[in-house]
Design a protein around this nucleic acid. Sequence first.
DNA 1: AACGGCTCTGTCG
DNA 2: CGACAGAGCCGTT
Length: 290
Amino acid sequence: MNAIAQLKKDITPEGQDYETVREVIELITEEYRDQPSLEMLAERLGQSPTQLQKTFTRWAGLSPKAFLQAVTLDHAKRLLRKEDLPLLETSFEVGLSGPSRLHDLFVTHEAMSPGEWKAKGSGLVMRYAFHISPFGLALIMVTDRGLAGLAFSDSGDEKACLADMTCRWPNAQFIEDPQATAPYAARIFERSNWSSDQPLRVVLIGSDFQLRVWESLLKIPMGRAVSYSDIARDIGQPTAMRAVGAAVGRNPISFVVPCHRALGKNGQLTGYHWGLTRKRAILGWESGDA
DNA sequence: AACGGCTCTGTCG
DNA sequence: CGACAGAGCCGTT
């Protein structure tokens, strides 16, 4: 039995929650005009209202109602609030605990341009595997220097997801190795592990421009969001927002490099490489911390 | 040369 | 208001 089959067999209740959440989010976004009640939603999913309530709360630490509220355009605009946005100037270097990041995941990153790692002999080795996450299956890829890739997939789409990632580093060598990636999964998706003494090591591989955009993303604290033009300004190219959007979309380490915290200036979510529904889910899930 | 996870402005309901 | 063009902007491919 291969690793993915094994994974499905061992799936935890927590791992299944996202399925439920995803369906609810989709129902809501399609039919938000109707303001569907908890009862109606539960019926559509073939669950009892109390059961749905429970699943939600376990998943997000938030009641369904509060969660749905957290996913509206209104709330997104609030995340964008302009005052006290000197956060883009604050340092986020290694383990330094700005209070704003106290409850966030600490990350140290190391940048690598394509030329740089290509030059280093015949490419680097990437170990990968799928793991259960709060947002569906997570494909995690690591090098000996740290986390290099994190992608999401619905179950059944693992192949496409893997292809999406591997083709980004054509001359790397890929080895399936759940043992190597599991600690990362535990560290990243278990909130209680976020504040551990050691920061998470991350390797950013991309063009110079992309690197600057991704580094800017790393400065956005949990529970906040910025617009694409904010990022453009931050990296010193205020008119390059469109290109910024493209670069954000190419972020290879989603969730850890919080590209889901980049929104349109008006609060619209506008896009997510792994699906808008998932972006909503992550944003809503994060709001459960506040 | 074309194409985006953008934004702004102008128009029409 | 909200939806929809049109027009600049800019790094990738």
